[in-house]
Computed example of a mutant assay.
Amino acid sequence: MTKISHMTVLDDLPEWIVIEEILVRLPPKDVLRCRAVRKLWRSTTSTDKFMLDNRRHQPLLPVIRQYIPEQSGFSFVVFRDNGVITSDQKLWPIIQLFKFHKLLGACDGFLILSVGSDFWICNPATHKCAPLPQPRVPSSSREGSGIYIAGFYGHHPSGEYRVLWFSRGCQRGYILTVGSDKPRIIRRPSVSSRLPECRRQGAFDSRYSSQVNHRCSLHWLTGIYMKTAVEIMVFDTITETFRWMRSPDQLGCRVSLLEMGNRLASCSNNDGSIEIWVMQDYEAEAWALNYRIYLVAMKTSPQLDFSLRHISNIALLNKRELLIWCWTPSWGHDYLLHCDIDEKLLGCYKLKRGTYSVYFTNQYIQESMLPLPFCEMQEEGGVDKEPRFLIVL
């Protein structure tokens, strides 16, 4: 009887090459499947070092909130370009929910969601989630429920994950370690008087503001959608202190603050073109106009009338490619334009009907297998309280 061989090409390779050169580059979902193949693979891919190295190999994917008309609900999706892999699917769902909900933060593969008055932290790659406490504001305070999440970050000196909360209408902020309900109060810097009153109140709300975690600091572009230059607020996540930074003197409406090739960048929509200003010297706060992308020159199918355009937001896929969300009533649809900095159109995707059915959340996810911080959160509160959303990554 002929023996059936179960040998694979991996059996001819040293184990360290399989683990350190192959498995570490796979998406977390595939690594989790590989853990069932061999005990050695399971143990070596479960170490903190491997999980951190694996996360660094994952692309940063902009998270998009999409309205699903036939289900009268929302879904969070990411845009994936499969490269040589042939697939028409570009928008991949990660969170499904049929009630009103918000994505408030993203860091190291973790997402913070709010559903009604509840807050959750989850890792879509591992399908794990747990309730997230919010600061306990004294009942006698006028602030009440008027607090919002401004940022979510890893505090490197302690190894903790922390959430930065602001209260509306005053200069008070809170730093809360994930898993704790005992915040530390800090003072938030005042906001420029050049901002309209309505913009000043929620200038750093993570639902609306364009924020970037760059060089261990959170950056907020306070003048988003305005034509006047407004400074960038910076929060150092190591010293946990605030400062202000000069923004570029660019024309047009500021749309997004981005990280481009390990540099801070600011995008604006100006008379049919996208301008990208890149910081040349971080310490000197020196900016330069590096790219101007003329949308009217792009040949789209169908040909879009950019004279009636509405560019709502811009996301960076990598150091050369952009994803632009366009909406205007004359089209009757939302469109996602995928292009590069040399004005080459890489794709034009028509989305479902519905006014403002899609928008960028200003958050990026980098998939990881990291366990939720403070696993006891799941044991204490996650068993009896089920999240009102479905993880579908």
Rank of each mutant, 00 (worst) to 15 (best):
Y291I: 05
R254H: 03
I121H: 11
S209C: 13
N362C: 14
P59C: 01
H310W: 08
L317D: 02
Y174H: 15
H57D: 00
V18D: 00
P248H: 02
F306T: 01
G347W: 03
I68L: 09
F50Y: 06
R136Y: 08
W165Y: 15
R353N: 06
D108L: 03
P157I: 09
L346D: 00
R263E: 04
C375N: 08
K227Y: 06
E283V: 10
T222I: 15
E15Q: 14
S217M: 06
F306K: 00
G223Y: 02
C267Q: 01
Y359F: 10
R388E: 13
P69V: 01
D108P: 05
T361W: 00
D236R: 13
G154N: 10
T177F: 02
P124E: 00
R188F: 10
P69C: 03
Y174N: 15
F74R: 08
G261K: 09
G354D: 02
L13H: 07
C107W: 01
I19E: 10
P329M: 03
L370W: 07
R38E: 01
S247H: 13
N270S: 07
L257R: 10
I293G: 00
L164Q: 08
C216R: 12
L91P: 10
P133Y: 00
R194S: 11
H214D: 03
P196W: 02
V392N: 02
A150D: 03
G382N: 10
E197W: 02
K39R: 14
R33G: 12
Q171S: 13
E379A: 14
T2Y: 05
T47K: 12
V163T: 04
F242Y: 15
K49I: 06
V78K: 11
F79Q: 05
G105R: 13
A284E: 14
Y356S: 04
Q71R: 13
S312V: 09
G159Y: 02
L345M: 00
E379M: 13
P196R: 12
P373M: 07
S72Y: 12
V383C: 07
M51L: 12
R136M: 11
S117M: 14
L103T: 08
I19K: 07
S140Y: 05
T8E: 06
A106C: 15
I19F: 05
F98E: 07
S301F: 03
C34L: 06
I224G: 04
L195V: 04
R309M: 02
